[in-house]
């Protein structure tokens, strides 16, 4: 962010400005510091921070999947677990608050075992092909998802949505069960491929009180049949969804995807290394959200917003997220690669 505005370079306001300094956010340091030990090193960190932040302060890199700075921690993926002296079980670094005298190991055999197993569990049941971060963790922790057997064949449409809690058919000993299923394509803006869903709850949080307050989606079902769903698996156009795309913005696996990206990937022309990212300000309203335009071959292929951007915290509305087709209609030159959405519009 830019440096705080000083009175001298402040805009010349017509209205009188109250005297005195502009109030700022209280300094972090005002919170009392807590002393803890991580991997033998002592760390001093303000009360109320998490073990994850404490680790980051001394350069300990802890993997996370369900954690995101702009969402309330749900601590469900358990990839971030660390060993805490005196605790029978491992504890999630992303949500466990520091307490004086804690002694923590972040790379012990037990920790590595749990992280490897969590990754194997995910990769053996979920399609992680569009989750680069997760793949890099797998490499680091030497996860071998193949050792649970070949993947079972994908479920038929809505089969997983119709599962009854507390019931399942006997497993097939020859295969490993997965969440693979057909992609849900029910609108022109984004697709939902729940074969890629690791059930990190991020989209639910973004749709709920952490950002959008629309509550169009929630977790339904129980156990391995738990899934992200609208009520009665209604298609999105028949749900509360307002297409803000904030769920797409937080999804770590590509389960939720711009239709434009989905189509290019289907054509096998999605090329991330060729893409450029340009920050701009959304032209629609006075809020002034920062948009990051992802362009490939001079076409906008998706729009995100930086997580650390104070106006948006990474969240947008339907206009900023999806309403950029008009940019591309240039004189005498139709878009070279029209998406379905555009075809339908013309």
């Amino acid at each position: 962010m830019s440096s705080p505005t000083t009175p001298s370079d402040a805009p010349d306001l017509k209205n009188p400005v109250p005297r005195g300094p502009i109030p700022t956010i209280p300094d972090e340091k005002l919170r009392p510091e807590v002393e803890i030990t991580i991997n033998g090193k002592s760390v001093s960190i303000p009360e109320g921070t998490t073990l994850l932040e404490a680790g980051r302060k001394i350069g300990v890199d802890t993997p996370t999947l369900c954690y995101l700075e702009n969402l309330t921690p749900v601590n469900v993926c358990r990839i971030c677990v660390v060993e805490l002296e005196g605790s029978r079980t491992l504890v999630p670094a992303c949500s466990r608050k520091v307490q004086p005298g804690m002694v923590v190991q972040t790379d012990s055999e037990r920790v590595r075992h749990s992280r490897r197993m969590v990754l194997e569990f995910l990769a053996s049941s979920v399609d992680v092909s569009t989750a680069p971060e997760l793949q890099s963790y797998m490499e680091h922790y030497e996860a071998d998802p193949a050792r649970y057997g070949p993947s079972a064949s994908p479920a038929s449409p809505s089969e997983r949505d119709d599962a009854c809690p507390g019931e399942h058919s006997a497993p097939d000993p020859a295969t490993a069960e997965t969440v693979h299923q057909p992609t849900k394509i029910d609108n022109e803006l984004y697709t939902r491929d729940y074969s890629k869903c690791i059930l990190c709850y991020k989209c639910v949080e973004a749709c709920g009180t952490d950002a959008q307050n629309t509550f169009a989606i929630a977790v339904a079902g129980r156990g391995f049949d738990a899934r992200i769903s609208t009520e009665f698996n209604n298609p999105l156009p028949n749900s509360a969804c307002v297409y803000c795309g904030n769920c797409i913005g937080v999804c770590p696996t590509g389960a939720l995807m711009f239709k434009s990206e989905h189509d290019l990937r289907k054509e096998d022309t999605w090329n991330e290394s060729e893409q450029t990212k340009t920050d701009t300000i959304c032209p629609y309203c006075g809020v002034g959200c920062t948009l990051t335009l992802h362009t490939q071959e001079n076409q906008i292929v998706k729009v995100t917003s930086p997580l650390d951007q104070q106006v948006t915290n990474g969240h947008l509305c339907i206009k900023g997220r999806f309403g950029w087709q008009f940019v591309q209609i240039r004189e005498a030159s139709a878009p070279s690669k029209p998406t379905d959405a555009q075809e339908a519009d013309t």
Binding site: N75, V76, C77, R78, I79, S114, M117, V118, F121, L122, S124, S125, Y148, G149, P165, G166, E167, H168, A170, P171, D172, P173, A176, E177, I198, L199, V219, G221, R222, G223, F224, D225, A226
Partner: peptide, 23 residues
């Protein structure tokens, strides 16, 4: 496997893999 709430990965998938292994 039936009674896991499904919230956390170790139990949601672990109980499935455990049942498969027993079979």
């Amino acid at each position: 496997r039936d009674e896991s709430c499904g919230q956390c990965v170790p139990c949601r998938v672990g109980t499935v893999r455990q049942e498969e292994l027993l079979h």
